[in-house]
């Protein structure tokens, strides 16, 4: 690792200026739990790291009737300790709660997790099923992009040189909705998802049918995968074992994993089916309160 500059701007504009100046030799820094490890491993040739934690917009965590705003530097523990978030965004809490241990959660941000764009990132699929949007700032001003379109490859995002993620907006969930996220790891903690699934459901006013469903899969493709077919299949279907099993089986076919040290193709596809099934049921349970 060679020396680089640490910059802690106080405004988005200042941050954009520094990032633009250094191009691909600058990286934004949230909790640093990915970035510093990667810098030591020589993944980046750095001139500057730009800490977002002094920028007010990046540290905002605000739940209102319009939804939830998560600043890109807000650490996981603040998310799962926030009463409003716990009440309305249980699926996001599921993700934030399992990222690393207590030390990591005290630094690691949801925004950092998203920008790191690991196929296994535990915060990303929950954001997708809640229909979240990324708020990006850059030399040409601000732009918004759906989180489901944010990751474009392992470690690759739509963020360009000079840009940074300011915050994430999550719409307020509908009535009678619930969401959940779970990953499979061979140990009980401190591991990377072999396969994981986030689900959100809205159930109709009879309580017996799915109104709409979002399913997203992690660790089974180069980016998080939106299981569109499985989600569409369930919309309007009665809530029962048959429909849920069928959706899980469709989701399994939407996964396109590889075999590596963390798991085999066969095992990962199977896990997607098992976890999708479990998460749909968990979401329904939460939707029913």
């Amino acid at each position: 690792m060679h020396p680089f500059n640490y910059v802690a701007p106080k405004t988005v504009e200042e941050a954009v200026n520094v990032l633009e100046k250094h191009g691909d030799k600058a990286r934004p820094l949230a909790g640093g739990t990915d970035l510093l490890v990667q810098a030591r491993g020589n993944k980046w040739d750095l001139e500057a790291v730009v800490d977002v934690k002094k920028i007010p917009e990046a540290m905002k965590l605000e739940a209102s009737d319009d939804g939830l705003i998560i600043g890109s530097g807000v650490p996981c523990y603040q998310i799962y300790e926030n009463e409003e978030v716990k009440k309305h965004y249980a699926g996001i809490v599921d993700g934030a709660f399992i990222i690393g241990g207590i030390q990591i959660q005290s630094r690691a941000a949801i925004g950092g997790n998203l920008c790191n764009a690991a196929p296994s990132g535990d915060a990303i699929c929950p954001l997708i099923v809640y229909g979240a949007t990324a708020n990006i700032a850059g030399p040409n001003g601000e732009r918004k992009i759906a989180v489901e379109d944010f990751c474009i490859g392992p470690g690759k995002t739509v963020i360009k040189n000079g840009e940074l993620l300011v915050s994430i907006s999550v719409p307020k969930p509908a009535k009678r909705s619930g969401a959940a996220y779970e990953r499979f790891i061979p140990r009980n903690e401190m591991d990377i998802a072999v396969a994981a699934v986030a689900v959100s459901v809205v159930i109709d006013n009879t309580g017996e049918n799915f109104e709409s469903v979002n399913i997203a899969l992690a660790s089974v493709g180069p980016t998080p995968i939106v299981a569109r077919k499985a989600s569409d299949y369930l919309a309007g279907k009665p809530i029962n074992d048959a429909s849920i099993s069928e959706a899980a089986s469709i989701a399994k076919d939407e996964a396109s994993p590889i075999s590596d040290m963390r798991g085999t193709i066969e095992h990962r596809k199977h896990l997607i089916e098992v976890i999708t099934n479990r998460m749909i049921k968990e979401s329904v349970k939460r939707a029913r309160g």
């Binding site: 140990r187 009980n188 591991d191």
Partner: peptide, 24 residues
């Protein structure tokens, strides 16, 4: 020791080597 196809070790970190933690 999980090997890459070229015979080198793939999981050379505690993260992926998967020793049990106290929770296991």
């Amino acid at each position: 020791y999980y090997l890459h196809p070229d015979g080198s070790m793939a999981n050379h970190s505690f993260l992926d080597y998967r020793m049990p933690t106290c929770l296991d």
